[in-house]
């Protein structure tokens, strides 16, 4: 009986010791994992690249990355403990100084960042103001056009046509100060196809006139005109002198 009880107690002890060993070994594994984890945190940029390829790691790394960026408090506890344990009292005082310095640095940074943000917000506000102004102007122009029954939007369309034709216009100005002006009448269909182009007013220089017609012929197609445009005609004045 005694022998049996002794054997049972041995077995129980073995089970207990085994479970303890197992628990230690599992703790060791966790420790190793933490080391790897720390390395990844140090090389944040590399991690970032790796994250792109590995979706499973992505969430974890991004979380740690964002936490570190936002506040030092959010750094994972095991690391913080490990660091504080190793630091001696003397070292901690130095560390404190360092931390103070870093705090000062971060304050400066914050100030700079705040200034930058202010600037950015100011510029954005200005841009918005300008956009609003431009919109107001467009609205006013449209309203004026509506009032007059004339063509403010037509002018916009004409400007688009102008840009397209100008890109195809080639003419060498060989005589300084020679100012040539020709007017060309363009007729187009509902889809914007140029169906006819005639010199309405000649410049007196046949080469110049030809260059204007060539630009139109090379353009071939204009953007489809607005449906409200009753008369599908544009008079384009070709002026040899650039605006200065």
């Amino acid at each position: 009986m005694k022998i049996i009880s002794f054997l049972l107690s041995c077995i129980l002890n073995l089970i207990f010791i085994g479970s303890v060993f197992l628990s230690i070994s599992s703790n060791n594994l966790r420790f190793h994992k933490r080391i790897i984890y720390n390395v990844q945190l140090v090389n944040l940029q590399k991690v970032k690249k790796i994250v792109k390829s590995e979706q499973t790691k992505k969430k974890i790394v991004q979380k740690t990355y964002t936490k570190i960026q936002t506040s030092p408090k959010s750094v994972s506890k095991p690391e913080a403990i490990a660091v504080t344990k190793k630091i001696s009292p003397k070292k901690t005082s130095k560390k404190k100084k360092k931390i103070e310095n870093t705090k000062k640095f971060t304050q400066k940074d914050i100030r700079k960042l705040l200034a930058q943000i202010k600037q950015q917000t100011d510029s954005v506000a200005k841009e918005n103001e300008l956009k609003e102004q431009a919109l107001k102007e467009i609205k006013a122009a449209v309203q004026r056009g509506a009032d007059k029954g004339s063509a403010s939007l037509g002018e916009v369309y004409a400007q688009i046509c102008k840009a397209k034709i100008q890109s195809n216009w080639r003419f060498p100005v060989l005589r300084f100060g020679e100012h040539l002006v020709a007017i060309v009448k363009i007729e187009f269909d509902a889809e914007g196809h140029i169906v006819r182009a005639d010199i309405e007013k000649t410049s007196g220089n046949s080469l110049f006139d030809a260059s204007c017609l060539k630009a139109i012929q090379a353009t071939k197609q204009l953007p489809p005109p607005p449906s409200a445009l009753q008369e599908r005609i544009i008079f384009i004045t070709f002026d040899s002198e650039e605006l200065q």
Partner: peptide
């Protein structure tokens, strides 16, 4: 009809 002026060739 629309009118527009192009100043200077491209």
């Amino acid at each position: 009809p629309l009118r527009v002026t192009i100043y200077g060739p491209a």
